[in-house]
């Protein structure tokens, strides 16, 4: 059985009293995991990832520049916030670029299953990057966040394409003004 009262312990006991704040010498499980995720990122050629502070791997931006589909030529920035409960909890992802898209609302909320209901600890940052990239290739009008955009996509694909262009060029679609986000 494990002995709680070995000599070594007693000795160390004497040293206590100094209550010093500080992190353990070992990184947190979340930190170890995100390091692994980041080191193993294999970004598609349309994606770029930017760390403002290379020492802070928990906060970064993803830039997607689609080279095909409705959003070809646009540039969309997503912010990632990874909590200390990663990977038990998914990262919080917001779209910082205003975009006319059925699955992204005007506040930047993103409807992607693996960011919420289908998140599992085995998924990685790479999985999310690919998920987001796919949203631009294949917007899903059946489960929309921006209902107006979804309806247009469903009923008049030509108009939808025009609206996306207009928004990306910087212009008003519906009652909303979109800032230019063409590269």
């Amino acid at each position: 059985m494990i002995k709680l009262f070995s000599l070594k312990n007693q000795k160390k006991d004497g040293e206590q009293g100094s209550i010093r704040a500080g992190n353990p010498k070992r990184a947190s499980a979340a930190q170890l995991r995100i390091t692994k995720d980041i080191n193993e990122l294999t970004l598609p050629k349309t994606c770029n990832i930017d760390f403002a502070d290379p020492d802070d791997l928990l906060n970064f931006k993803l830039i997607i520049s689609p080279d095909e589909g409705f959003y070809k030529g646009g540039k969309f920035v997503f912010s990632f916030k990874v909590s200390s409960n990663y990977p038990h909890e998914p990262p919080k992802v917001k779209c910082e670029t205003m975009v006319y898209h059925p699955n992204i609302d005007l506040e930047g909320n993103v409807c992607l299953n693996i960011l919420r209901e289908d998140w599992k600890p085995v998924l990685t940052i790479n999985s999310i990057v690919y998920g987001l990239q796919y949203l631009f290739l294949e917007p899903n009008p059946e489960d929309p966040l921006n209902k107006e955009a979804a309806e247009v996509l469903q009923n008049n694909r030509r108009l939808f394409e025009q609206n996306v262009r207009k928004a990306m060029l910087g212009g008003v679609v519906g009652n909303t003004y979109f800032e230019r986000c063409l590269k």
Binding site: G69, F70, L137, E138, P139, N140, E142, R157
Partner: peptide, 12 residues
């Protein structure tokens, strides 16, 4: 088909 040349979008 979201685009003549692009991948086919499967139903979920």
């Amino acid at each position: 088909h979201s685009d003549e040349n692009s991948v086919e979008k499967e139903l979920e």
